[in-house]
């Protein structure tokens, strides 16, 4: 067996036994499942402190429903990040899409499937616009999507005048948050299905592997024949489509089209989850299980804290702090694994 060494720079002279993976060392296991352990511990702590309110089926269902929309937003954030780009317009796109979906049903009187289709189209076009600006006009992704996101926010306010759209919605959607499939909230099931699709695309298709290569080293990706620009564009289109789904689900979760939803603060927990996700499960890479786990960890923590009766501002501090800490962790992890770390971008 190979000796497990902690410093990655030392070379292990042994040629590996072909075929099988080597058994990971305890430290590696702790790294992979550390967040899961922390999550379980967190549940025990809150259960001990607030047994009568926290440890209830109703509370867990409420967490599941409220986090499902954010989880889809986290998937939307993750896709461009795998290719090394940031899409900070996901929140704004989500807000826009929830208004579009509501308006298509309420004002254009379209059926739910058609409204969803129309919303996906809008979200996809926004994603394509972001992707084109980043991939073909060479604009820094954070700046480009920040600009596009702000324009979207303005457009939503102009259209709605700040008034929610709550009439004429499809009852199937408006009541979705109360429905269950085999005891699980429908929203959670839809989110899990999307997570599986995203996981599949990222890890089981050439597209996902190519995008990972672009995120790792764009110049090398180009010189191995990958069409880097197109891959980045597609990752933004995927992000836009997921944001659109999240927008539709948001209408369902809230029961109306709310123009105040969306924007950067709204998706901050999702952003934290993506980076938290990259520190566990498959450390060093943005991965779907880690992200979902990260999001529910944060959601549960917030829920538990509010049941403990902390002031609302704590939520902001907690979410903001979680983003920075998660990014610090994942950056340190990268330095430890690869021996280098760029100035943050």
């Amino acid at each position: 067996m190979t000796t497990s060494s902690t410093t990655p720079q030392t070379e292990t002279p042994a040629i590996p036994a072909p075929g099988r993976r080597t058994t990971p060392a305890p430290g590696v296991l702790l790294e992979r499942f550390g967040l899961l352990i922390l999550f379980v511990a967190l549940i025990f702590v809150f259960a001990a402190l607030r047994p009568e309110t926290f440890m209830t089926a109703a509370n867990f269902r409420s967490i599941a429903i409220s986090q499902s929309v954010l989880a889809v937003a986290a998937l939307a954030l993750m896709l461009p990040l795998v290719g090394g780009r940031f899409d900070v317009s996901v929140g704004a796109n989500l807000g826009l899409c929830s208004i579009v979906c509501a308006a298509l049903m309420s004002r254009a009187e379209l059926s739910l499937p058609l409204a969803v289709l129309g919303t996906l189209l809008v979200g996809g076009v926004i994603g394509a616009l972001n992707g084109a600006i980043v991939a073909y006009l060479g604009v820094n992704s954070i700046i480009a999507t920040l600009g596009v996101g702000t324009v979207i926010g303005g457009a939503v306010t102009a259209y709605t005048q700040g008034v929610p759209i709550s009439t004429g919605l499809s009852p199937a959607l408006a009541t979705i948050s109360t429905r269950l499939i085999v005891g699980l909230p429908v929203l959670l099931v839809i989110m899990l299905a999307l997570a599986v699709v995203t996981w599949f695309v990222l890890t089981q298709t050439p597209f996902g592997r190519h995008l990972t290569a672009v995120g790792s080293n764009a110049a090398a990706a180009r010189l191995t024949g990958l069409r880097v620009n197109r891959l980045v564009l597609l990752s933004f289109v995927g992000s836009g489509l997921l944001a659109a789904v999240a927008g539709v689900l948001q209408v369902g979760a809230q029961g109306n089209g709310d123009p105040t939803i969306g924007g950067l603060p709204f998706i901050l927990p999702a952003l934290a989850a993506v980076f938290l996700g990259a520190t566990n499960w498959h450390p060093g890479t943005y991965n779907v299980p880690g992200t979902i786990l990260g999001l529910f960890f944060l959601g549960t923590a917030i829920s538990g804290l509010s049941l403990l009766g902390v002031d609302p501002w704590v939520t902001d501090v907690f979410n903001g702090g979680a983003v920075v800490l998660a990014i610090v962790f994942s950056a340190q992890l990268k330095r430890r694994r690869t021996g280098f770390l760029d100035i943050g971008n």
Partner: peptide, 20 residues
């Protein structure tokens, strides 16, 4: 800068040019 994907595995580096 132009060939290695340093933060990916050896396997991923080997198959980078023919994943399809």
């Amino acid at each position: 800068h132009e060939a290695a994907f340093l933060d990916l595995s050896v396997r991923e580096n080997l198959s980078a040019a023919e994943i399809t």
